[in-house]
């Protein structure tokens, strides 16, 4: 599906409401809360990036702090955009009685966050041992 068509779908509630049948409103609200939980996950990553930029002491590698901050910011923005796309696709699937969309994204995000944490542990240890 072209990108512009996906974006148009996010913003066009009548299009979303024309397909399939209207489900029990509780399903729609649960879908909406899942979207909000993802959005807060994205906001937490963005807050982490902004906090790293202003509260972390300089790290042993030059500009590592800023690199971490920018990576967290971009990751957070990606999470927010993917959250609304996933919400729209889930809403469609619920209305059409189809299987809910599956996604590799949560696994990828978890691996990235875990990897980033390990790298930071290594950076802290290098700084602590190297003095």
């Amino acid at each position: 599906m072209p990108v512009w068509q996906a974006i148009r779908r996010w913003f066009d509630p009548s299009e979303l409401r024309s397909v399939g049948t209207t489900p029990d409103y509780r399903f729609s609200l649960a879908n909406e809360r899942t979207f909000l939980a993802w959005l807060r996950t994205g906001l937490a990553l963005i807050a982490g990036g902004l906090a790293a930029a202003q509260f972390l002491p300089p790290l042993p590698l030059r500009h590592l702090r800023e690199a971490i901050a920018v990576a967290l910011l971009l990751l957070g923005g990606t999470v927010a955009v993917r959250a609304v796309d996933h919400w729209a696709r889930t809403e469609r699937a619920i209305r059409l009685g189809e299987e809910l969309p599956v996604s590799r994204f949560p696994a990828v995000l978890a691996l990235l966050v875990g990897l980033g944490a390990l790298l930071l542990v290594a950076a802290v240890l290098v700084k602590g041992l190297g003095g």
């Binding site: 994205g42 963005i46 957070g76 927010a80």
Partner: peptide, 8 residues
Amino acid sequence: ALATAGLA
């Protein structure tokens, strides 16, 4: 969601 991406 887009405002959040914009903030980032």
